[in-house]
């Protein structure tokens, strides 16, 4: 019969339509929150998702994976007296590896000797050129530049971030990327231990 195919197709849409209700009701009967809860969001992004697929940003947000990258930021350690100890040594690798060349670094010079010191005087990233590739974070030997999760950075003007705006504390980094942070800390400690052992051995010899 002409029209069978259409009806068959419509049965799929009808099933999808009914799924929204069965799914919502079954969550309700189980006494669980399907909306505005982590569990619900996770379920809606899993293979079993059925029915309503919408994540109602901004009321609820997708749970981003740890590796998610948006724009870069610079990490600083909180010093004892609240001083920001910037990890960046202004070695310039990020500026060299950056594909669209959107990183500008001013290296500091010691006022007395004129020699370069490993602190950036200023650091600019033109966020409107940045292509979010993550190379800077990947190749930074000091783990000083990292990719952020924060994507709510729309503005009314061009966004050229300077050092002040780029800096975020280590605790923030540990919060958004706990596994990476733990791994890097471990590496760093192992390296320090090896160094200490080496110097101890050298002292003993």
């Amino acid at each position: 019969m002409y029209g069978n195919g259409i009806l068959k197709g419509l049965s799929v849409t009808l099933k999808r339509f009914l799924d929204t209700y069965t799914e919502d009701i079954s969550w309700m009967l189980r006494g669980k929150k399907r909306y505005n809860s982590d569990e619900g969001i996770r379920h809606r992004s899993s293979k079993d998702t059925k029915g309503i697929f919408t994540i109602q940003y901004p009321e609820e947000q997708l749970i981003v994976p740890e590796e998610m990258r948006y724009i870069p930021f610079l990490v600083y350690d909180e010093g004892a007296d609240g001083k920001k100890e910037v990890l960046c040594t202004s070695c310039g690798i990020c500026a060299k590896v950056c594909p669209p060349q959107c990183i500008w670094i001013v290296r500091s010079n010691d006022p007395n000797t004129g020699r370069p010191v490993p602190v950036p005087t200023d650091f600019y990233i033109d966020m409107d050129i940045c292509m979010n590739c993550g190379f800077c974070a990947e190749y930074c030997p000091f783990d000083a530049i990292k990719m952020d999760h924060d994507f709510e950075i729309a503005s009314y003007g061009r966004s050229v971030y300077n050092l002040e705006k780029l800096l975020k504390p280590t605790s923030y980094y540990a919060k958004i990327r706990p596994e990476n942070y733990a791994r890097e800390e471990e590496d760093r400690k192992a390296k320090e231990a090896a160094k200490a052992a080496k110097s101890a051995a050298a002292a003993a010899a």
């Binding site: 940003y57 947000q61 997708l62 948006y70 724009i71 966020m127 409107d128 940045c130 292509m131 979010n132 994507f151 709510e152 950075i153 729309a154 503005s155 009314y156 003007g157 061009r158 966004s159």
Partner: peptide, 13 residues
């Protein structure tokens, strides 16, 4: 009026 950084900005952005 509004600049949205990102390459590309995610739908949420």
């Amino acid at each position: 009026d509004v600049y949205i950084p990102g390459c590309p900005p995610t739908p949420q952005a």
